[in-house]
Design a binder for these strands. Structure first.
Ligand code: SF4
Ligand code: SF4
Lengths: 134, 134
DNA sequence: CCAATATAGGACCTGAATAGTCGTATTTAT
DNA sequence: ATAAATACGACTATTCAGGTCCTATATTGG
C-alpha cells in the first residue's frame, strides 16, 4: 500500500539523471535503461509520455534521444506524478471517481479527514523539485 | 496508486464509530458492517486484528462484541495503519524489503529523497488521532 | 445441558491493476 | 540504403487487494 509505482520511480530516476548533467545533452532510452538496469520498453513508454506532455524533448532518428525540456528547479515531483499516473486516485478513490465509486460513500465518516492528508501530501510533492532530488 | 487500503478505511470507520459513542458500549461486527454497509467477514477480520494487538477489547459469545480499549485522543491513525498493514512498505518497497527487493537498488538515485517523503507522511499520520477524525 | 450468537481464524476464489514483453511503423543522420 | 532511434498499440504474466466460505471455539440464557 502507498507505494509509488515503478513507472513513476523510473521516470524520476531518468529525469534526475538528465538534470544532473550539462543541459542540452541527449540521452537515449537504451542507455538510461542500461545504466539503471531498468526494462527498456517500460522506460521507453514512460519517456514517451513525459515527452508528449512537453516535460522533456524527444529527438527521433539516429543519434536521437531525449533531453530535458525544463528547468529542474521549476519541475515539481507532483507534476511528474500527475503526468505519468494521469488521474489515478490518491489516498481514497472517491476523490477522483466520485461518490458512486464507493458503496459506503454516504455513510463514510473518514472522508473529510482523509482530505486533509491528501492536501498535505500534495503540498509535499508540490514543493519537491527535480533539482532537489539530485 | 497511493490509496489507503479498504481494510484500513474500514478499521478507521469502526474505530471512529466506537469513539463517538459512550465508552464501554459493545458493538458487534455484524451491526457495524450493516450500519456502514461493509462486507461483514472483511470487517470481522480487521476487528480481530485490532483486538489481537490490544487496540480494542473483544468479548466472545452471546452478547459479545468489541469495545474501545484506548483513549481516542491517544490513538494515532499511524498506529492503526501499522497494525492493520503490518510491515507493508509505504512509498518504496526497498525500505522494508531491503536492498535485494529492488534490482536497481544500488544505482537508484531517488531512494533518499523518497525517504524524506516517507518521514513527512509518518509525521502526518502520527499527529492525526482517532479523536480528531470524529 | 443445549441452542443461539458471537468472535477466531484459516483457506480459498476472483478481478483489477501493475509490470513487463513483443511487434511494427516512423523518423532521421550518415 | 541502412542503421539507430522514437512512437505506439496489443499482448502476457504476476501480484495483490477484496471478498467469500467454512469450521472451531467461547459465552450467555433458557
Ligand atoms: S467514501 Fe470513505 S471509504 Fe469510500 S473511498 Fe471515500 S474515503 Fe474511502
Ligand atoms: S531502490 Fe529506488 S527504485 Fe528500488 S524500490 Fe527503492 S526507491 Fe524504488
Amino acid at each position: 500500500m502507498f507505494q509509488l509505482s515503478k513507472r513513476v520511480e523510473y521516470g524520476l530516476i531518468a529525469l534526475r539523471h538528465m538534470a544532473m548533467h550539462p543541459t542540452g545533452q541527449v540521452y537515449t532510452a537504451k542507455e538510461l535503461a542500461k545504466e539503471y538496469d531498468i526494462p527498456y520498453e517500460l522506460l521507453a513508454k514512460v519517456l514517451q509520455k513525459l515527452a508528449r506532455s512537453g516535460l522533456i524533448f524527444s529527438l527521433q532518428g539516429v543519434r536521437g534521444g531525449y533531453t530535458l525540456g525544463q528547468d529542474p528547479n521549476k519541475l515539481s515531483v507532483a507534476h511528474v506524478i500527475r503526468i505519468i499516473e494521469e488521474e489515478k486516485p490518491m489516498i481514497a478513490e472517491c476523490y477522483v471517481e466520485g461518490a458512486d465509486s464507493c458503496s459506503i460513500f454516504d455513510v463514510c465518516t473518514i472522508r473529510k479527514p482523509l482530505g486533509k492528508v491528501q492536501r498535505n501530501l500534495n503540498i509535499l510533492f508540490d514543493k519537491m523539485t527535480i533539482q532537489e532530488i539530485i
